[in-house]
Design a protein around this nucleic acid. Structure first.
Lengths: 115, 115
DNA sequence: TTGAGATACTTTATAAAAAATAGTATATTA
DNA sequence: TAATATACTATTTTTTATAAAGTATCTCAA
């Protein structure tokens, strides 16, 4: 993992919600998708992932059920709730804004507007 | 402040270092610059700002001195060190990478490459 | 058949960053 | 002279992420 988690801090929940916007999934799979989407540059630590699930479930943003008879051990699947979808929309918009702000705050270029 | 600090979490130090890449400055001024650069959308909480200064100074990334006889109370000025400049370069590069990753992780669009 | 490795989740304790809260102190200005 | 802006400090709490250690299942090669 070439990216330190500190730079993604605060986005764990939103990343998980994004995956669940695609449909139900479980921890291990979500993490594989994250790794695949980042070309292996990022993946969650297990504790990070599963504590995030609990946080999200306690907040009513996701629900869960045991299921799936694929290979390996038993899986806990997660479903995003309506509240979760709403929060995802919000966070998604916020990310766009944050990106613009950080671009402005982390650059050495001079502003064109008057200071 | 229309942006929640959680979305900028982890960037406090880099934002401060960016300001100090321009030259010595002090807390209150840096915060005013941040507010001005973000069109008022973001500003540090005092405690966040000053604990960041201590953290940065203890890590040898900045140094400080009392000075300045402008209006208001006495000011503690900060200077970025060589180590600080080096870290800024690194963090700056990392932000570019993180931005790309988060764009990939927070979108609902399908990948064009094979999964 | 056995043992290594991948899959899959849990629990407990710790660390770090940010914020809440409260306080000290100076300069300006109405 | 009281309010407001400027400017910094210290203490405590909350949240997020992680380290570390553990449980359990399935596959596959030797």
């Amino acid at each position: 993992m070439s990216i330190s988690a500190d730079t993604l801090r605060g986005y764990t929940d939103t990343i998980i919600l994004t995956r669940l916007m695609w449909g139900d999934s479980y921890g291990y799979e979500i993490n594989r998708q994250v790794q695949s989407r980042t070309g292996g540059a990022y993946g969650f630590k297990e504790a990070t992932l599963y504590t995030a699930f609990r946080r999200l479930e306690q907040s009513g943003l996701i629900t869960s059920y045991w299921g799936g008879d694929g290979p390996g051990a038993r899986r806990r699947y997660y479903t995003i709730t309506e509240a979760g979808k709403k929060l995802w929309e919000e966070r998604s918009r916020e990310w766009q804004e944050t990106r613009t702000l950080l671009d402005a705050l982390l650059t050495l270029e001079v502003e064109h507007e008057s200071d």
